[in-house]
């Protein structure tokens, strides 16, 4: 280790120490001051940091690494101060030297899912977690899958329960084609192709030939469910529907099953939940959320399932109805108007 090298290093280090303070403290409030700053420290010919960098080889080998690191750190500091100061001048030339953090962030377009999709996903998620598969089927359906296989006799008033859009009359080659009035036809298609146990939900768009008003539209969406296995009972049905209602409407939901009629289930029930509303004299009212029941033996036999060995339950609900209840929407038509001021509420 030579004396000379040591003194070179000491001098260089001392120079660097002196510079570091200036590098840190020089005020950079104008473009000019930044330019001056850059020239003073980094210019190839006169820059003070550049000059020190050139002196690295003069420093004794054992100090060189440390010296190199320090001088490079000084250089990085100069560069980052220049960059920071410059960026505050970019954009509006009239803006001040400081960043205005109150400016709004750069806009990122916000999208949204339709409330029907939100409701459908919620319903699907609940039943998938209970081990239901999901099946879909055609909207233009034949009479067999929409009515006959579901135990709707021809010329029976039960057919009046669902006002139907027809595409081909019953006397046509295909025995009548119509826009499905429910997704129950999908259940028939599943049972035609699969042996029990069957545990499936069928979501989809359905059609009703009804005058359009705040409470009915010519189409809506349904989720229907089906479980066929040995030993399935109405008590099992109550249990799963109650679990579903708790997920959607809260752990303390009040629910009732009341007898009803659907051709494809027997016994049949409609499910009401107690909807709290302090404005009403009773503090609320019963709101129907779905229909359900035990699959009628005729339906099982019609698709070749032994109704003595197997029993099953089925349920079905309107997705719009669930969405309207959850979001407090009082007019079904607004769901199909697609006004962005409506849609953006469901991001």
């Amino acid at each position: 280790m030579s004396e000379q090298n040591n003194s070179v290093a000491d001098a260089a280090l001392a120079a660097l120490k002196a510079l570091q303070k200036e590098i840190q403290e020089t005020v950079l409030d104008t473009r000019e001051s930044v330019d001056e700053y850059r020239i003073r420290f980094l210019s190839r010919k006169q820059g003070q940091v550049t000059a020190l960098l050139k002196r690295i080889p003069e420093v004794a080998a054992e100090h060189r690494k440390q010296f190199g690191q320090e001088i490079n750190a000084a250089k990085s500091l100069v560069e980052s101060r220049i960059e920071q100061a410059s960026s505050s001048f970019s954009g509006d030339a009239t803006s001040g030297p400081e960043l205005d953090f109150t400016l709004p962030g750069r806009e990122v377009a916000e999208g949204s899912l339709h409330p029907i999709t939100h409701a459908l996903r919620l319903i699907t998620k609940v039943f998938e977690s209970y081990g239901f598969a999901v099946a879909e089927g055609p909207e233009a359906e034949d009479d067999w899958h929409n009515f006959s296989a579901l135990n709707f006799p021809p010329d029976h008033p039960a057919r009046d329960m669902q006002d139907t859009f027809f595409i081909e009359p019953p006397e046509s080659d295909h025995g009548g084609i119509l826009l499905r009035t429910h997704t129950s036809g999908v259940q028939i298609r599943v049972m035609e192709n699969q042996k029990p146990p069957i545990r499936v939900i069928a979501p989809g768009r359905v059609y009703r030939n009804e005058a359009i008003s705040y409470k009915s539209y010519c189409l809506f969406h349904q989720v229907e469910g089906l479980y066929v296995d040995e030993g399935v009972t109405m008590a099992d049905l109550k249990q799963i529907i109650h679990a579903f209602a708790r997920t959607l409407f809260g752990e303390d939901v009040k629910m009732r099953f009341r007898p009803s009629f659907f051709p494809f289930t027997e016994p049949s029930a409609e499910v009401d939940i107690w909807w709290k509303d302090d404005a009403l004299p009773d503090g609320g009212r019963w709101m129907e959320i779905m229909g359900c029941g035990m699959v009628d033996p005729n339906v099982l036999e019609g698709v070749g399932i032994d109704s003595e060995k197997y029993t099953g339950y089925a349920f079905g609900m309107g997705i719009e109805r669930i969405a309207m209840l959850r979001y407090g929407i009082d007019d079904i038509r607004i769901l199909y108007e697609n006004d962005i001021r409506f849609l953006e509420q469901f991001s």
């Binding site: 999208g111 949204s112 339709h114 697609n338 849609l343």
Partner: peptide, 21 residues
């Protein structure tokens, strides 16, 4: 479809439901 719905809504698109008739 569910995947595309997420991608599109994430990319700033709003989902609509229109009449089939």
């Amino acid at each position: 479809r569910e995947r595309a719905r997420d991608v599109l809504s994430g990319a700033g698109f709003r989902e609509t439901y229109t009449n089939s008739m």
